[in-house]
Amino acid sequence: MATAPKNLSEPLLQLYRINAGSCNGCDVELATTATVASFDVERIGCSYTESPAEADIVLVTGPLTVRVREKVLRAYGEVPEPKITVAVGVCPISGGVFRDSYAVDGPVDRYLPVDVNVPGCPPRPQAILAGIEEAVLLWRARRDGVLPPPVASQPHPEKGAVSTGVRGKMDFNPAACVGCRMCEHVCAGGAIRFNEEFTGLRFTLWHNSCVFCGLCRHYCPTGALTVTDEWQLAHRQDQKYHLTTQGIMPYAPCSGCGELLLPVAPELLRVAFRGTGREIDRLKSLCTECRQKQSIGGRRR
């Protein structure tokens, strides 16, 4: 496991957990970072405290329910400055699957300043540790009144080591997408958006709202979406809205009338017809209207 640069004169930084109405997944994973040797926060110079007044770093889980809001803000207020806040899991970051409820008042950064986000549902303990390590760097910089060190471009080699099969962030292949929007339809977190633009259809996936369930991949008819094992996604707050995957499916003119249409992906033809022939190739470049006209006008039965 990775360790922060050890400085023996630095005392252990105290972590304080606040549950802002979570499903307990992230909280159980936080418990493993206090008990399981290989994920122990003491390895990165931290320890847990039950008292907000002793804390240096605040870990928030949950989407911030209306009922718990005042208690959360009170506990947060008791933590002395300088303090760094880490949002653990997609719920505090964006509301995740609980967005749009009358009972949810998040995201958390509407009410208190968040410094580090750790996406995941729940994040692996390794990802939580990476987020805490980032928070430690920011805390020291804030205490010393200096600018925080720039973000390392490459993740620590040890951190990138993944066990196979981890569900990490989704990847998107625009060449295989047919714009059926099934992924948008099944996404519980509302992480996927399609926008019709002048030149094409734009696909946007925001990883801070994605719960990594892979349902979009399951229902995608052409395999345009894939689950990668990239789980190392902890980032600073200024990167929050940059954590997206985008793709454009450019429109092409209809070979009959020239109207713009979304071309048929070869993956769809494979699924629908197993293979393609000359006739299919000709028809696929036509818009619906031209296709109708040609088949009716072409050969009268």
Partner: peptide
């Protein structure tokens, strides 16, 4: 931890 689940499930389709 009331997140209004009974309300939310009726705003989401069966797959979500």
């Amino acid at each position: 931890v009331h997140r209004g689940m009974e309300h939310l499930v009726m705003k989401r389709n069966l797959y979500q």
